[in-house]
Design a protein around this nucleic acid. Structure first.
Lengths: 273, 273
DNA sequence: CTAATAGTGTCTATTAGACAGTATGTT
DNA sequence: AACATACTGTCTAATAGACACTATTAG
């Protein structure tokens, strides 16, 4: 077994082809905040959280929507790949980036065996100066839970994409679920799973971190911020409780947002620790 | 670009060698609970949480300690690899297994480019019927935090392994840290990083899940359970508060543990929901 | 008796939930 | 004035932290 007398000698003679190699990619779920105009002029534009999807113009899954992503280069740190792709897709620096999960199903890509490490990125869409590529589009995210079924609805101006996920409890000591896609016509690869994982991660982290501010513009009203929390958590929050909790995280500016058909509100900024 | 008229035709002609492939491995951090005998007969044996390490008898990192692990096979689901290795290392079924993180530094393995997906497993050591392999050993885990430096101390009957990790804040909106190894003579590869990631994950999850019961024997006293919490969280807990919180998670049995040099205590079982 | 842990009672401080009420812009 | 949201006050319920106390075994 130990036929080599030193590490140098071992490495010089190492045959890297003993194990069959495979391809790796990264997929990035980019979240941001957008709003949808409401026809009643007095109502606040409804805030959504949204995700960036790309329409595939190549096989496989031609004409379906997928997450931005690409192959990991052999001489590239794993985390450099999503950074490279984000730089390509946006012109923003200092983007919040977090590793989500590594998906390694054998048949997840019809071309060959590909393992993919997914990342979640949060950006303030207002910082995007350039227009998106033609094949890219923001979709507002809505989801509904009914028992152990989650229905996800992604909408842009022209299209409605929907899919359904079944949550299967994985063990009794934690609330870990295995997600299974039970209905999907629009999303390529296993990206419906990546999207639901991203939604769940965002939903969890928004409650105990300041992660949401990565998606907000510099100035915002507390009403807008509360709406973003509500649409991500998918539940109404009580005003006084929300303001109590958020109070320590924001700074009130002397700017005021007027012209909304109701009492104007103060603009706030994020106060980092 | 779209020179193919169908997905079938595209796949038939797909050249899978366009992108250079790489090797993938998995590393598993297996935690369990053990205790160390105390010479004063009246004292409770001190509980620790412990990790399974393997002494490398091959290059690279010959004679250093590493986590159990191995290569991902080309036709094997990613999660099957740690399951296969666990089955090899233990004889236990239904092991708690959770994906930890995918490490993808370019030079993390001196042989070649290897990306590794790490998993955390929790087992009740008492269920291990067979003896461990000669090159495997349980190490009790202790860690100390001093500012942004974490010192980790792993001990078995014969050896003391130590390493130091620096926590570097990654962003201002969450408490995410980048870990950097600043002192390490005993642990192979980047496994010191995997170990600290595992400790942090366990420490976080023990507070809001029932994860700890995967490591406990069927019957345990509340004092023992509290000690496990204390050594994982690295802080003393107050008895009444601990018992209040844990009360809903356990069932009191009519068994009693005697012969300890002090008032005997009731044995409890985990009550799953 | 003493050492050591088991286990309980209760006060207090903090926080979350609920709801009612006041304030102030636009049309 | 009517509408819609902004913003605050306060009661209540639930929870966490602290500490003091009692109980019971082996030796």
């Amino acid at each position: 077994m130990n036929k080599y007398s030193s590490e140098e000698e071992f490495l010089k003679n190492y045959d890297s082809s003993v194990f069959q190699k495979l391809s790796m990619t990264t997929d990035i779920i980019i979240f941001s905040v957008s709003d949808e105009e409401v026809n009643n002029y007095r109502k606040l534009n409804k805030k959504y959280f949204s995700v960036l999807l790309i329409k595939r113009d190549n096989y496989p899954f031609k004409d379906k929507w997928c997450l931005p992503g690409g192959f990991i280069k052999i001489d590239e740190e794993l985390e450099e790949a999503p950074k490279r792709i984000l730089a390509n897709e946006t012109n923003i620096h200092n983007i919040y980036l977090e590793q989500l999960y590594t998906f390694g199903g054998v048949d997840r890509d019809p071309r060959m065996r590909i393992v993919s490490t997914s990342y979640m990125a949060l950006i303030d869409k207002n910082k995007l100066k350039d227009k998106l590529n033609d094949n890219a589009s923001w979709f507002n995210v809505e989801y509904y839970e009914n028992g152990n079924i989650i229905s996800v609805r992604l909408t842009n101006k022209k299209e409605i994409l929907t899919f359904k996920i079944k949550k299967v409890l994985k063990d009794l000591t934690t609330d870990r679920y295995k997600f299974e896609v039970i209905e999907n016509n629009d999303i390529a690869f296993d990206h419906a799973l990546v999207i639901i994982s991203g939604i769940e991660r965002l939903k969890n982290k928004i409650e105990y971190t300041d992660i949401v501010f990565n998606m907000m513009p510099k100035y915002f009203t507390l009403g807008e911020l509360q709406q973003v929390y509500e649409v991500i958590l998918n539940k109404k929050l009580l005003d006084p409780a929300f303001r109590r909790i958020i109070a320590s995280k924001v700074i009130k500016t002397d700017k005021i947002k007027t012209g909304e058909g109701h009492r104007p509100s103060h603009l706030y900024m994020y106060k980092s620790k």
